[in-house]
Design a binder for these strands. Structure first.
Length: 510
RNA sequence: GAGAAUAUAGCUCAGUUGGUUAGAGCAUCUGCCUUUUAAGCAGAGGGUCGAAGGUUCGAGUCCUUCUAUUCUCACCA
């Protein structure tokens, strides 16, 4: 609603929306009910049973007394008796309503109800002629009058398969009115339940290892921990600029300095970048830091976590993602970034100068921004020729130092750091390193980032003096991990768009 | 940020080469129907064709601009 409409709303009590005939009728009905002494929005209803449970417990066709509540999804009136389906948290159940059972007044009142209204029904379970377990209503009560018609999709069973006709499918409206999407498209509801299950699973997995779930600042005076452009905001009382975090890495490491052996946080992060089906301006990452461990150890953890999460939500170790069958059974393939580039392009990028790398990229047909340096050039080659072709889960390891200012230098390969990314379906899913804990080198790295910034790289990191001070007190050796939760949920639920795993994805205002 | 596609009833969609009063199914309303299930039968109402301009005797249809969404590309996880 625009500001103008809101103003109008204040001076004029009538709704600002243009009413269609169906809404007018329902609004009138609401008034009639009130006039007849029936509260269209009563306070409570004692629910004793839910749809699927009623069906499940109808063994030996023994009737049970039940009170169910839910939204009316279908109505079939046959004169003096009617069938309807109501939908509750578990699914749908059919209600049978007969005039001679509920009485003439009640039956007439029922006839005024609409699809979309929420009702409470008391009666007993039974099986209809056609075999559907249903509730034979003895009493019913309106619990909430619905004023807007919901998009009704008809369903039919064909060979045991459910066929839906004219489903509510306009993507824009589904995202803008997710509540309607959730009412009428059960698979959407299912996807989000699985999302929650994935998050709960990770939380249990981490907690059971003794690691502590923590919360760190979202509003940060200095943003860091990733290469990205931030959202800025302003604190009035302090009159200072603040940033919405792009990562929580630097705060979690401060906690490792503080003596926790393992900490993790499910973090909403914010990045001021483009929007597409893999990127939403706010997204969720879980970051984990474990003291006395390295990135090799972390790879094993990721393999097991992903595999078990897949078993948990899919009951098997494969999933379909972006048209590919993905097998998440460990072990995953491990490949250094230079080996991967050699495998997919035939070029050797090891021990090459910036000029040589630029030549290789040019030779491969890549057009590069002249400002970018060797690390970024390698990243470009990888992103263009390798990453999209890594469909099955693959750990890419041992990145150039320059691309990874927070990672520890490789124990045996000069110029590289101990880092891995997990690529699945051609997309990055995790990022991890043996964390750099030498405060002197960390300072050098951040200062060279600052130089890159001056060169025009607006994603390069900023020197965070307090973070360096923390490292100077001493941080134990430590392995860190970040998992993109939205993408992990996409992978495990087979969704092709991040908008289908975020309840309210960002859209421009209507 | 660039390109392409889409926008017609509450929902899902037709609408030919520019030509009478813009159609269908579901939903809604009226009547009939006491085990139906995409219930059925008979009838009725419902539209600023995304917005604003323009061309034309005449625009849902052609042109321009704008808005939103979707897809692709660029940046990014």
């Amino acid at each position: 609603m625009s500001t103008e409409e809101q103003k109008n709303n204040h001076s004029d009590p009538s709704p600002a929306v243009e009413l269609n005939d169906q809404m007018k009728r329902r609004l009138e009905e609401r008034t009639h009910l009130a006039e007849a002494g029936i509260n269209p929005y009563p306070y409570k209803f004692d629910v004793t049973a839910f749809s699927s449970s009623i069906v499940a417990s109808f063994v030996d066709d023994t009737p049970e007394n039940v009170s169910v509540a839910g939204r009316i999804m279908t109505i079939r009136k046959m004169g003096k008796a009617s069938f309807l389906h109501i939908q509750d948290c578990q699914g749908r159940i059919q209600i049978y309503l007969k005039r001679d059972d509920v009485g003439e007044d009640a039956y007439n009142a029922f006839k005024l109800l609409d699809i979309g209204d929420i009702v409470g029904v008391s009666g007993y379970s039974f099986r209809t002629k056609t075999g559907e377990v249903s509730v034979h209503a003895q009493q019913f009560e309106l619990l909430s009058k619905s004023l807007r018609p919901i998009p009704v999709a008809k369903e039919k069973e064909v060979d045991g398969e459910k066929v839906v006709f004219d489903a509510f499918s306009d993507r824009e409206m589904r995202y803008r009115q997710r509540y309607v999407d959730l009412i009428v498209n059960p698979e959407v509801r299912e996807t989000f339940i699985r999302r929650t299950n994935v998050v709960s699973f990770i939380r249990r997995y981490f907690s059971s290892n003794g690691w502590l779930e923590v919360e760190t600042p979202i509003l940060q005076p200095i943003y860091g921990g990733a290469a990205a452009r931030p959202f800025t905001t302003h604190h009035n009382a302090l009159d200072m600029q603040l940033y919405l975090r792009i990562a929580n890495e630097l705060y979690l490491k401060r906690l490792i300095v503080g003596g926790f052996d393992g900490v993790f946080e499910f973090a909403k992060d914010f990045r001021n970048e483009g929007i597409d089906r893999f990127h939403n301006p706010e997204f969720t990452q879980v970051e984990l830091y474990v003291a006395y461990k390295d990135y090799i150890w972390m790879m094993e953890l990721v393999e097991n976590l992903l595999h078990e999460a897949c078993l948990e939500v899919n009951k098997r170790d494969t999933t379909t993602f972006l048209g590919n069958e993905i097998n998440l059974k460990p072990p995953f393939r491990r490949l250094t970034i230079s080996d991967s580039i050699r495998e997919y392009t035939g070029r050797d990028i090891r021990d090459k100068s910036e000029a040589q790398l630029r030549d290789i990229a040019k030779d491969l047909g890549l057009e590069l921004d002249p400002k970018i340096s060797s690390g970024k050039i390698i990243d470009e080659i990888f992103g263009e020729f390798v990453e999209p072709r890594l469909i099955q889960p693959t750990f890419i390891t041992d990145y150039p130092e320059e691309m990874s200012p927070l990672a520890k230098k490789h124990r045996s390969e000069p110029g590289l750091v101990e880092r891995f990314e997990l690529i699945v379906g051609g997309k990055e899913l995790c990022n991890s390193f043996s964390e750099l804990n030498d405060p002197v080198i960390q300072r050098e790295r951040l200062e060279s980032q600052a130089k890159l910034r001056q060169r025009g790289d607006d994603e390069a990191m900023i020197v965070d003096e307090d973070f360096l001070r923390a490292l100077e007190y001493g941080m134990p050796p430590c392995a860190g991990l970040g998992i993109g939760i939205d993408r992990m949920v996409m992978l495990l639920t087979g969704q092709d768009s991040i908008r289908d795993v975020i309840f309210f994805p960002h859209l421009k205002p209507e």
